[in-house]
Computed example of a mutant assay.
Amino acid sequence: MLFTIGLIINPVAGLGGRVALKGSDGVGTVEQALALGAIPRAEARTEVALRKLLPLKGQIRFLSWRDDMGGALLKRMGFVNHLLGNSDHKQTSPEDTEAAVVAMEQAGVDLILFAGGDGTARNICNRVSDAQPVLGIPSGVKIHSGVYAVTPSAAGQVVAMLIRGELVGLREQDVRDIDESAFREGRVRAKHYGDLLVPEEGRYVQQVKQAGREVEALVVQDIADYFRDEIMEDDVLYLVGPGSTTQGVMDVLGLENTLLGVDLICNATLIASDMSEQSILEHIKDKPVKLLVTAIGGQGHLFGRGNQQLSPDVIRMVGRENILVLATKTKIRELDGRPLLLDTGDTELDQALCGTMTVLTGYNDRILYPVTTL
């Protein structure tokens, strides 16, 4: 008996990430991202997941909707696939996603596998039944929801376990999304939109992102003070990634901060704000540079969630030895022993970054913590 999977790819998911638009919702944002040189990556991330299923190809039947929403990829990879529908308009829309969900459920799929971000999860939540299992391949800029695997590869591994008949639990997980307009202004307004039934397999499926600022304000202050007093070097560029912990550094230096973007400082002076990938590469080329990042609370992602401007090219230019991880011990404890996670979209880079990293957790207080990809 064949395991039937409904595949939905949002081809514009994550398009605004590397060009610093902090999302891809809306036709106008998509057009702006493309005009800025953004390259669609959702299909490539889906291919990473589907490679895990190639050894099981003879046990799977796919259903898809539109060639650019999965049909073309499945054909190229040699999977058995039936195209349920198509649409005349050039650019995909939320209506395409919702129509695909309805058609796939009516056809009796065992699992809906989708690639996108929180907006795509919302579209699926709008139309899917409570009893239909779904799983997300993380491909968007905003991934607050708990319905996604931690990486595309992990999504493929979970699906492979299901196909092999291994015992995989199902659990309702939150679908959350934020107001992108407020997000671009540095304000987080997250809202719960519903729940989806998701295969739950420990380390492979991410936790719901914890919203809000760090409650340990004094610890954040200590981390920032130590960076200013003991770490910051003259004439070195520092990229400051998103997050409330890194914001503490900017506050201590008295500098304007893009809470949800990437800023550049040198000699305690703000050089550039809310930078795109291309702007970062232009500013740091052939210059001494270090990168300040923090982990997403509850999830533990260092790269690949909300900071796609820090692309593989940027990270390679900075160098592993010049990455400074800042996090309070409370944030680390919330991971409950799980490692910090990498999902840069570049498998070789993820592997090169794996191991342990020093995490600055207070004033002259550091820990070694594992960093990995799945």
Results as ranks from 00 to 15, higher is better:
Glu200Ala: 15
Asp225Ala: 15
Asp274Thr: 04
Val293Ile: 15
Leu63Trp: 06
Leu196His: 02
Arg187Phe: 07
Glu348Phe: 04
Asp195Lys: 13
Ser153Tyr: 03
Asn10Asp: 15
Arg45Trp: 08
Arg164Asn: 13
Lys209Cys: 14
Leu349Met: 08
Leu239Gly: 03
Asn307Ser: 06
Asn123Ala: 15
Leu167Ser: 08
Ser145Met: 08
Ala131Lys: 06
Glu95Val: 13
Gly70Thr: 11
Val175Asp: 00
Gly169Phe: 07
Leu342Met: 11
Ala20Asn: 14
Cys125Pro: 00
Ala33Tyr: 02
Ala13Asp: 06
Trp65Ile: 02
Ile332Trp: 04
Thr358Pro: 07
Ile284His: 03
Glu172Gln: 13
Leu50Thr: 04
Val205Lys: 00
Leu368Pro: 07
Gly156Pro: 02
Leu7Lys: 02
Gly37Pro: 02
Lys90Cys: 13
Phe183His: 09
Leu374Ser: 11
Pro138Ala: 07
Phe227Tyr: 14
Thr358Ala: 10
Arg176Trp: 09
Gly58Tyr: 11
Ser244Met: 08
Leu84Glu: 05
Glu230Leu: 13
Asp225Cys: 05
Ala103Met: 10
Ser181Lys: 08
Gln157Arg: 15
Lys285Ala: 15
Tyr369Leu: 05
Asp174Ala: 15
Ser93His: 05
Val318Thr: 09
Ala268Lys: 15
Asp67Arg: 12
Val240Leu: 03
Gln59Asp: 14
Leu197Ser: 05
Val175Tyr: 01
Gly186Cys: 05
Thr246Gly: 04
